[in-house]
Simulated scan of single mutants.
Amino acid sequence: MANSTLVIEFLLEVFAESWEFRLPLTVLFLLLFLGSLIGNLIIIIVTTVDQTLNTPMYFFLRNLSILDMGYVSVTVPNACINSLTDHRNISVAGCAAQIFLVFFCSCVEIQFLTTMAQDRYVAICKPLLYPVIMNHQFCVQMTLASLLSSIVIASMHTFKTFQLSFCHSNVVPQFFCDIPSLLRLSCSDTFNNKLLLLLTAIGLSGSCLTFIVISYVHILSTVLKVPVKRERGKAFSTCVPHIIVVSVFLSSGAYVYLKPTANSEMIEDMTISVFYTIVPPFLNPIIYSLRNKQIKEAMKKLIFRFFHS
């Protein structure tokens, strides 16, 4: 069969078929979306305005917040509108754009989280070398490298996906366009696409996870040697939430993208995909701001300045 797309549009699933479930789920996702936007926007404003937060840690945190605002905006608003209006159509170009942006954002997310783990490792294990290693030039280079490599990887996967022919059905079993769902709809041989996903998972996600694990093993071994109990608690409180976010993000993404398509249940896939597309952008501001004294102090100063200006 010729490598051409036989469908001119796709139909996305809504959150639930019956309105008694669909309406509360749509409201819940809208609240998560708004919470993500507000939380990340606050971090961006606070870390930009307050000069005391002009450090590598907050540089990466600001970048992560900008990314998360974009990440959550790729899927949730469109899915909520589809659920409320029952308009499920998405063009092939729109579907390709969504696949590219979701893949791009998830690749950048894991690389940013890895760089943040390195930042914590250097700060805790090599504090005297921190200004030398985590200098501004290095931070900018790491950010650009993450963005450029993610553009290449996302472009490659999007191109390979839309080389396939889609003739079984045009109903995507997901509330947004993602690669595993489209592979299930294809009537072409998808072996190369699955192999590319596996290589990306091993090459990018595997190497990032390995680096994060090694960083935290060193961090924990250093922290356990600290005699002051309060200092140990402080170090643990900054590291444990980071580990939780990375674990949820990678495990849910790996489950959806790497499991055999024949074993897929639509409701299960839709539920798990929430954990790598919606939960990280919502949790990151909570984890990195509510547990951070410097950000809380900066927020108080900003509010005080706003009301007394």
Rank of each mutant, 00 (worst) to 15 (best):
F176H: 06
L302R: 12
V72D: 01
F29P: 04
M134R: 10
P285D: 03
I179K: 00
L37W: 09
F21M: 11
D50V: 02
Q294V: 05
N82I: 01
V140N: 13
I212K: 02
P127D: 08
L258H: 02
L220M: 13
M69G: 11
P56K: 03
S169D: 10
A201C: 04
Y121D: 11
T158A: 05
C239S: 12
M270H: 00
F307W: 07
Y276N: 06
I179F: 00
K194S: 10
Q294W: 13
L32D: 01
I151P: 08
P56S: 04
K225L: 08
P241H: 02
T238P: 03
G233A: 10
L144S: 09
V46A: 12
G35V: 02
P56Y: 01
N170M: 07
Q294I: 02
Y257A: 07
T271N: 12
L182P: 03
I243W: 07
C105L: 05
T158C: 10
Q141A: 14
I133V: 06
I179P: 00
P131H: 03
I153E: 05
L11V: 11
A235P: 09
L67T: 07
V240A: 11
S205Y: 13
T85D: 08
N292T: 08
R291W: 14
L197P: 03
F104M: 04
G70F: 05
F282S: 02
P131G: 09
H136N: 09
A145W: 15
R305P: 00
P281C: 05
H308D: 06
L23I: 13
I43C: 09
L64M: 09
L204S: 05
Q111K: 14
V256C: 02
F249V: 04
D50L: 03
T210P: 10
F15D: 01
Y58T: 09
N78D: 10
S4C: 11
L258R: 03
D189R: 07
G233S: 13
C139D: 14
V140E: 08
C239G: 11
F29Q: 06
T114P: 00
T115S: 13
V213A: 05
I133D: 09
E109W: 09
Q98T: 08
S207M: 04
I110W: 06
T55G: 05
V92M: 06
L283Y: 04
N63R: 11
P24I: 08
A97W: 10
F60K: 07
S181K: 04
F15Y: 05
V140M: 12
D189Q: 10
I90W: 05
R230F: 13
R291I: 15
L30N: 12
S36H: 04
R291N: 08
V76G: 02
P77M: 03
L196T: 08
T210Q: 14
L199F: 06
R184G: 14
H168R: 15
G233M: 10
N170H: 12
L23F: 14
F104C: 01
Q98E: 10
